[in-house]
């Protein structure tokens, strides 16, 4: 993987004079996750990192940098967010340079911290072979990379970035992973309706309403005009009650229906670790079943909720 990193640095170095900024990853404060790096001068290029700790989706920064010439380093799943942004004309293709990578899975820092029982701030962590070696105040331990991957990696359908201007390294198939963890959606399906409602009440009771899910979502582009903050109409009120928090999650899910690429940024950003991507996954499943459409695969397609057919093939209306 070392040579791939060198190739990436060379490519960035070559492209940098024509670009205003290149977004990549650099070593983070805690060794378990890398952090975004905004490269504007050549000396920054040496800080670039590329390994399974590059879990953050950088595409979320693109709409805010519109008008500038931006380069971005993208994994397969990140590129789906870029496609979606291009499809919605929220960014301009000609202003964008994508450095595409082949990804074999990205690590979930929270999961690793829990597995190693070491907390987030470790003394050192390095990847060696198929293992992440961690040294923390609780001693040293090694965790197999495969066990520490993000849940989305088990559902990966495209590990190569597409669209892409410069592909670094070699193309390849998605990682073959066994023992996918059960999703919250699967767990909910085993519950009764009342249990599900209680599940959400408990989960939303922990929500601190920081709106990190909204800030991290690459498709939440309304920024200061979010309907959740509007007073007229007053969609969500200020009461500290699970009802309003659940309402916001329903709003987030419905506003990203047919757009969400399940990049998992909302869950990654959530400081209390709530399974908030579940509703979006449920909507995606339905959209796939009804309209045979998946977001982020083709920037030329019309999104399913922007069009209709007079005779919908998969919709069965009730006869009264």
């Amino acid at each position: 993987m070392g040579s791939q990193l060198e190739d990436l640095k060379t490519a960035i170095r070559q492209a940098l004079p024509d670009l205003d900024v290149v977004i990549a990853w650099a070593a983070g404060p805690d060794g378990l996750a890398h952090t975004p790096l905004f490269i504007t001068s050549e000396s920054d290029v040496d800080l670039v990192q590329w390994d399974p700790r590059c879990s953050q989706n950088l595409a979320g920064y693109l709409p805010g940098l519109r008008g500038k010439k931006v380069g971005i380093v993208a994994k397969g799943c990140d590129a789906r967010s870029i496609t979606e942004l291009l499809q919605e004309k929220l960014i301009d293709r000609e202003q964008l340079t994508v450095f595409g990578l082949h990804c074999q899975g990205a690590l979930d820092p929270e999961k690793i911290a829990a597995m190693a029982d070491c907390g987030r701030y470790v003394r050192s962590a390095e990847i060696n072979g198929g293992e992440l070696k961690i040294v923390s105040s609780k001693g040293a331990c090694a965790i197999s990379l495969e066990n520490g991957l993000l849940a989305k990696c088990f559902r990966c359908t495209g590990a190569d970035a597409q669209p892409c201007d410069q592909f670094i390294g070699e193309h390849g198939a998605p990682p073959v992973l066994k023992d996918a963890p059960a999703t919250t959606l699967d767990r909910l399906e085993a519950m009764s309706m009342e249990e599900r409602f209680q599940f959400w009440e408990e989960q939303m009771g922990q929500c601190i309403r920081c709106y990190a899910c909204r800030s991290a979502c690459p498709l939440c582009v309304c920024q200061d005009h979010c309907a959740a903050q509007s007073r007229e109409p007053h969609w969500v009120d200020q009461t500290d009650h699970p009802r309003e928090k659940l309402m916001f999650q329903a709003m987030h899910a419905l506003h990203t229906a047919g757009r969400c690429t399940e990049c998992g940024e909302c869950e990654r950003a959530c400081p209390v670790g709530l399974p908030i991507m579940t509703m979006k996954q449920a909507l995606n499943r339905q959209i796939k079943a009804l309209f045979d459409y998946e977001a982020g695969l083709d920037s030329e397609k019309t999104p399913p909720l922007f069009q209709f057919r007079e005779n919908e093939e998969h919709i069965k209306e009730r006869k009264w």
């Binding site: 249990e195 409602f197 599940f199 959400w200 419905l254 509703m279 909507l283 339905q286």
Partner: peptide, 10 residues
């Protein structure tokens, strides 16, 4: 599409 959200919410 909404029809699929309601059961997930309980």
């Amino acid at each position: 599409v909404l029809r699929s959200l309601l059961p997930v919410m309980g």
